[in-house]
């Protein structure tokens, strides 16, 4: 079975700041890590491989330092890894990202199963997976929190739908995005680290793709444009009460009465 997992490198904090003057993100000095939700995607692929045999390929789209997440995936047991990187990919929105990764997958070769994390902690859209499935012309199931059965032709999964759980069977080739309660991710192994130290990471750039039209990628290939970014507006008219606990309690009670909650 050929399984491919999409991993993204994200900033190791959600405490990003923006420059009030320029409105630009301050990214300097922020450490990076693998998108935490993608660890579950990787773990899922490794479990399926353990059961069914086959090969786990991982890929990430990002700047050269994103290779770090491929190395981490090797330490967890991935067999082969690709970095998708090119200057012209910069500034991609969901559509351009999904298109770029879909192009890469066409070069890497057809997969039986593609697994994505449910969302990233920076882009935070949960859209790249389903969009990619569409561009590859394969079906998808999102929010998978349990794998019930897997055969050579199809996979049966539970899909977490807020108020209900849907059990569906989906035939290969297909894409799933997985929830974090699916499996506990294993830790990277030091032994594997030694074993994979020299394992190459293949790099794909625009020149390797079938569609080399630059206008389909990066900022130019993006359908959405960010007009501006700004800090959230926290200003509210407020009342601040200090004093003895007893007094505070009666002030709250009075206000609740006034607002007709009691």
């Amino acid at each position: 079975m050929k399984i491919l997992v999409c991993l993204k490198q994200v900033p190791d904090t959600t405490k990003v700041e923006i420059d009030e003057q320029t409105g630009v993100l301050k990214r300097d000095g922020v450490d990076s890590k693998m998108n935490p939700y993608d660890l579950y995607a990787l773990e899922t692929s490794l479990r399926i491989k353990e059961q069914m045999g086959g090969k786990v390929t991982v890929l990430t789209m990002g700047p050269p330092q994103a290779k770090a997440v491929i190395k981490e995936a090797y330490m967890m047991g991935a067999d082969e890894g690709y970095l998708i990187s090119d200057r012209s990919f910069a500034g991609s929105d969901v559509l351009a990202t999904a298109y770029t990764i879909a192009q890469a997958i066409k070069v890497i070769g057809e997969q039986d199963l593609i697994i994505c994390g449910k969302q990233t902690t920076d882009g935070d859209t949960a859209q790249v997976g389903p969009a990619m499935a569409e561009l590859l012309g394969i079906p998808h199931v999102a929010w998978v929190n349990l794998i019930k059965d897997i055969t050579a032709e199809a996979i049966t999964v539970s899909q977490d739908m807020a108020n209900s759980v849907e059990t569906v069977e989906i035939t290969f080739p297909c894409l799933i995005t997985v929830e974090k309660d699916i499996y506990q991710p294993r830790l990277p192994s030091y032994r594997k680290k030694l074993l994979t130290e020299d394992r190459p990471i293949k790099v794909l750039s625009l020149k390797d793709f079938l569609d080399q039209d630059e206008s389909h990628y990066g900022l130019k290939g993006s359908a959405t444009q960010v007009e501006r970014i700004f800090p959230p507006d926290n200003e509210v008219e407020q009342e601040v009460w200090v004093g003895e606990g007893v007094d505070l309690a009666s002030r709250i009670a009075d206000k609740l009465k006034e607002l007709r909650f009691i």
Partner: peptide
């Protein structure tokens, strides 16, 4: 969030 990205990608439009 599962359906919209798929439809948007089909129309190559922004979401």
């Amino acid at each position: 969030r599962s359906l919209a990205p798929r439809v948007a990608a089909r129309f190559k439009t922004g979401l």
